[in-house]
Amino acid sequence: MERIVLNPVKIPYDMDKMELLKGLKTDSKNYEMILEIIENTGEMIKPRAILKWCNVEKVEQGSVTLMGQTFISKLLFDKLYNLEKVLLNIVTAGDELDVLKGKYSASVVDIIKYTILIETRKEVKNYISDIFGYNNIAELCPGSLPDWPVENNQYLFEMIGEASDIGVALKKDYFMTPINTVSGILYADDKDFINCRLCKKSCIGRRKPFNESEYLRIFKQNEINEG
């Protein structure tokens, strides 16, 4: 099916526009460093993405089949059971800023790269909405929850095809390089879903509180039904 390469993805590369950096204290020790990097690297950054349309071929209790590949996942079953198409995707912030790690703090450079990744994911969703009319786009990423482990990246890469044209490679442990890269399934009309709602772990990046009733509905109730 149709494969779309966005290289590069244009993002707002500005301290006042990037969501993660908006709350940064101007008197913090890293503020001036981040500001200097952003002001001098606009031409360097090249965030990129691949999208590929995919039919939802079969949905059975606890599993979903896409392009002949069956994924065993209660989460995918719950979220995709009434859909006909989804978008497979790989999104990366790139590694262009890594050359700065000898001059600046590596942790500061990584903060900027992570910010670029967040903004790139937002712009990819905006592109899908503008071009295809999809709204409330949510995403399912291998490894974000135990129900769909990171090993499934190997199948996503096989389905999407060669990712070297956006500078991404899959490692033996099924994680990706460059580090600030994500893969997964994008689908429409699910404004309320976010992985945090189904995750019990404590995390500094938590965006939503754990929702026990939703967790039990998706995972435990399905176990009862299967029994």
Rank of each mutant, 00 (worst) to 15 (best):
A49C: 10
E158W: 08
L97F: 04
S28Y: 13
A138K: 03
P149C: 11
P149M: 02
T41K: 00
L88P: 01
Y104L: 07
Y31W: 11
K103H: 07
V59M: 10
K125D: 08
K122Y: 01
P47Y: 05
V56I: 10
G42T: 05
L145S: 03
L21F: 11
N135I: 05
V108F: 05
V99F: 01
G94F: 02
V86K: 12
P142C: 11
P47T: 09
G23S: 05
K46L: 14
E60M: 03
T41F: 06
E39K: 10
L100E: 07
D95A: 11
V56E: 01
K25H: 09
R121I: 15
L156R: 10
V91R: 02
S73Y: 06
I50W: 10
E151S: 00
I137C: 08
D130V: 13
K46C: 14
Y114M: 13
L87H: 03
L24R: 03
N135M: 05
K85E: 11
E123Q: 15
G23W: 03
E84K: 09
T41S: 10
T26V: 08
L51F: 00
V150Q: 06
T115H: 04
T41V: 13
N152A: 00
T65K: 08
T115K: 00
I160N: 08
E57I: 12
V108H: 08
D130S: 15
T26S: 14
K22L: 12
L140A: 08
I118C: 13
